[in-house]
């Protein structure tokens, strides 16, 4: 039981980082960057390539994360900014970021071939025992990083002018621009931060998964599912979604069968979408919603009617 919880939290921390990589971008720009999973893959493949070419592992990791950060910014300029300039409310970015995802994945497959390569073990071999359960230092590191990221993000968001402007942009970019916020700069930072988080998640998970061009697909989908479970409105909620998904997946693997984690995330997300379409940790969670049902319904039907 404790083992399930610990393993679940540690893998959930990585899912949560991926979900936050989606959520940070969505929070500022109202765009879901469907190539986020591929950014994780970029950092893993770059780290492996560099370290096997003789570059020190620590440096390889830094370069790998830097590359995925840059790739995130590049995606904004190539695939997102042009379509938002035409129409801020269209969903055209949905196709263009998926297009980038397909292209990135196939470029990696064309260069490295579709097979897996080893990843530096880092802290993976070192175990630590807590009660009768055991986890690796690598897994504990993931939990620590996730905690630091969530807390740091919330402090910046709530306590600094920078974060408050970000909140302003997320609710009304035109208004925020009118009071002097540089919305482009914020979008660049958001996409860069998304790439950074995905890159960090890649390094945390690399020793377990090894390096494969199609990892982005797997982790992109898992991170996206975690995002849907937690809720897209707040990045911290996305992390919560990741943890819930992590624990439930490990539990399913332990108690149902080793294949269960393939399909179990989808069962969870379907249930969540049915009972709480905005996510488990969204501000209007299902329980308060239930009591205020009529109010919520009318509020959603009036947009566009109210003066």
């Amino acid at each position: 039981m404790l083992q399930v919880l610990l393993s679940g939290i540690s893998s959930g921390a990585v899912y949560g980082l991926m979900a936050m990589a989606f959520a940070v971008v969505y929070y500022v720009t109202r765009v879901i960057n469907f190539a986020t999973g591929q950014l994780l893959m970029v950092s893993i493949m770059a780290t492996v390539t560099l370290s096997s070419a003789g570059v020190p592992v620590a440096l390889a990791i830094v370069i790998g994360i830097a590359l995925s950060t840059c790739a995130g910014v590049l995606i904004y300029f190539v695939a997102v900014r042009p379509v938002l300039r035409v129409n801020r409310f269209s969903f055209a970015w949905l196709v263009s970021t998926l297009g980038v995802a397909i292209a990135l994945e196939s470029i990696a497959a064309a260069i490295f071939g579709p097979t897996s390569r080893g990843f530096p073990a880092l802290l993976y071999r070192k175990n630590v025992h807590i009660g009768n359960a055991s986890v690796t230092w690598q897994e504990l590191l993931a939990v620590g990083v996730a905690l630091v990221v969530v807390i740091g993000f919330e402090i910046v968001r709530r306590r600094t002018l920078f974060g408050k402007l970000g909140m302003a942009i997320s609710s009304d970019p035109e208004m925020a621009a009118a009071v002097g916020a540089n919305t482009t700069w914020y979008a660049v930072i958001a996409f860069g931060l998304g790439g950074l988080l995905a890159g960090v998640a890649g390094v945390l998970v690399g020793p377990i998964t090894f390096a494969n061009p199609y990892l982005g697909d797997t982790y992109g989908i898992v991170g996206f599912v975690a995002l849907m479970i937690g809720g897209v409105e707040k990045p911290a909620a996305a992390m919560g979604g990741g943890l819930v998904l992590g624990v439930l997946s490990v539990a399913a693997n332990t108690y149902i069968g080793s294949q269960a984690s393939d399909w179990f995330p989808f069962v969870v997300v379907i249930v969540v979408l049915l009972i709480a379409p905005h996510g488990l940790f969204a501000s209007g969670n299902p329980f308060t919603r239930w009591t205020r049902r009529t109010g919520v319904r009318t509020a959603t039907t009036t947009t566009g009617v109210r003066p």
Binding site: A79, S90, A92, I102, A103, S106, I107, A110
Partner: peptide
Amino acid sequence: IDPFIQEVVFGCIFVAVIVFFP
């Protein structure tokens, strides 16, 4: 062409279409 390259071309076409010929 090579299936991987073909996928790359596809991805690029998607982006290009959306960006240049919405």
